[in-house]
């Protein structure tokens, strides 16, 4: 369904230097798959997620969505595909202030058409019921706990029945127990709806819930296998990479992750 081939992304800085964020990412995500990408802060995880979600475009390489190239998509078409195919879950929840929980979840349906648009409040209420917040419809988000706010964000990401859920550090702002509960909910709902789930995290316990795992280092995505969810090890064992300045990636610390298939 999603297929990245040698995707690069670089940006020109104010002092005219070029920052290479992704230097050759190849990734394939099929329908219903759960994929985790781990990496240290600043390694380009969010950039990768933005490219997958059509919020950003690659500088080079190819991104195929359902077998079709996304390179020549118009802004309007990208926006429409984004709304129809992707649901985003952000680390900071990004709920709309001043709107009730119900209005927040119904907000994406304002950009839908037909029945989804006209039934937006009912669909939003059903989704909130599903995430266990059916009794908080008229509450303001700032009256909810962090875990509840993230559940609202999950309901909002899923209300248009996307085919892919892109979760950017979904437990980053939550304590361990709440994070576990939220991830369980996200996994379950994604599975129920048959949506693919791409989770970006630096939490190995969160990553371990996915079927496939990748580590982003040196702008390259490397498939890895977790040793054990119970002994995830420290993040330092996994990543040590930062985006490189200039064209060269020489001198970057070698990753010390366990390559896929090479786990002891």
């Amino acid at each position: 369904m999603l297929e990245l081939t040698d995707v690069t992304r670089s940006v020109r800085l104010a002092d005219d230097r070029v920052l290479h964020i992704l230097t050759g990412v190849t990734l394939r995500v099929d329908a219903g798959e759960h994929v985790a990408v781990v990496g240290r802060s600043g390694t380009g995880k969010s950039t990768l997620l933005n490219i997958l979600g059509l919020l950003d475009s690659p500088t080079g390489g190819e991104y195929l969505l359902d077998g079709a190239s996304t390179r020549r998509l118009s802004g309007r078409r990208r926006a429409r595909l984004r709304g129809e195919s992707f649901g985003f879950v952000f680390q900071q929840f990004n709920l709309l202030t001043g709107r009730t929980v119900l209005e927040n979840v119904a907000a994406p349906l304002l950009y839908a058409r037909g029945r989804q648009f006209w039934s937006r409040n009912r669909l939003a209420a059903e989704m909130l019921e599903r995430v266990g917040l059916g009794d908080r419809l008229e509450d303001m988000p700032d009256r909810l706990s962090g875990g509840e706010q993230q559940r609202v964000a999950i309901a909002r990401a899923l209300v248009r029945r996307p085919r892919v859920i892109l979760a950017d550090e979904p437990t980053g702002a939550l304590d361990v127990d709440t994070g576990t509960a939220v991830m369980t909910l996200l996994d379950d709902i994604a599975r129920e709806s048959g949506a693919a789930l791409v989770t970006i995290t630096h939490d190995l316990a969160v990553a371990a819930r996915s079927g496939r795992h990748y580590r982003l280092a040196d702008g390259v995505l490397v498939p890895v296998t977790l040793v054990s969810p119970d002994r995830p090890g420290s993040l330092a064992e996994w990543v040590g990479d930062v985006p490189t300045l200039g064209a060269s990636t020489d001198g970057a610390p070698a990753p010390r992750a366990v390559p896929a298939g090479g786990a002891p």
Binding site: A79, R80, L81, G83, P108, L110, Y111
Partner: peptide
């Protein structure tokens, strides 16, 4: 809102 699919 752009992430929801709002066009420019």
């Amino acid at each position: 809102r752009r992430s929801f699919g709002a066009t420019s």
